[in-house]
Design a protein around this nucleic acid. Sequence first.
DNA 1: AATGAAAGCACACTGGT
DNA 2: ACCAGTGTGCTTTCATT
Lengths: 150, 150
Amino acid sequence: MDAIDRSLVRLLDQDARRTYNELGKEVRLSANTVADRVRRLRATGVIRGFRAELDPGALGRGLTMVSDVRLREDVDRTRFERELHQVPQIVSGARMTGEYDYQLRLACVDPEEFETVVDRLKREHGVRELRSRLVLHDLEVSTTGLLDLA
Amino acid sequence: MDAIDRSLVRLLDQDARRTYNELGKEVRLSANTVADRVRRLRATGVIRGFRAELDPGALGRGLTMVSDVRLREDVDRTRFERELHQVPQIVSGARMTGEYDYQLRLACVDPEEFETVVDRLKREHGVRELRSRLVLHDLEVSTTGLLDLA
DNA sequence: AATGAAAGCACACTGGT
DNA sequence: ACCAGTGTGCTTTCATT
């Protein structure tokens, strides 16, 4: 994980479809050396994968909510986590310390849809309490800043 | 945005570096046509970009915190949002409704580093109050579930 | 770890249905 | 909206340092 690797990660974070050749020009290395390095970055887990970033807004889902969630005492966390795949409005989630058990992020078309998701979570998936707020906008922050410290 | 486009988005969400040829085989279309469709999906904003996904843990940052933040009355939000790029531990953030103004996600190597970030946010960037909790683990949820509804 | 050569593919165009 | 052909450029493997 030297300075060149950091450059490569930064470049691939901006555009994951850049060719090895193109990357090679930027870092002044041959394409196949770059390919080797990128493979190594994947193998060591620094790069988890290359993914398309979607815009929920362009899919008609302009309302995103963040909900802290507390489960009923009797529900199994593993099962809860598995079941969340069944709720397509959930775009991310994490188990947390503190007052609540989980925090979920939901992309909805309108308040009415959010309401049905809330009801569903309570009725079908064992959530006892739910504290939600609206996301006004996301900040443009890159996870690539971490490389400045490594 | 038909069923084929949805398949393409799903495939690119799994691996953004798949070739048009490969994608074409999956959806039974020529590479050419696939390239056209993908270009259109980018142009219409459904696909915002192709990014490398990093693992903070593999970079030595195994402690991730979520902090709700309230700003002092006198600080300009635009300036605050711009300044956050200067804090590399911040990996995402959003302005929110409710009790707090922003929610930030921070990737740190240990509690001590988190402490210095907290102090910095208060001293240099106008945060008045801060309520934090630890992320135990992230859920494996794909934003691609949204396509099931579109 | 990095390089160059060469074979095999993928990509962007153009043009055509 | 889709496909085929073409020229160019990319990726990969292997041998070499």
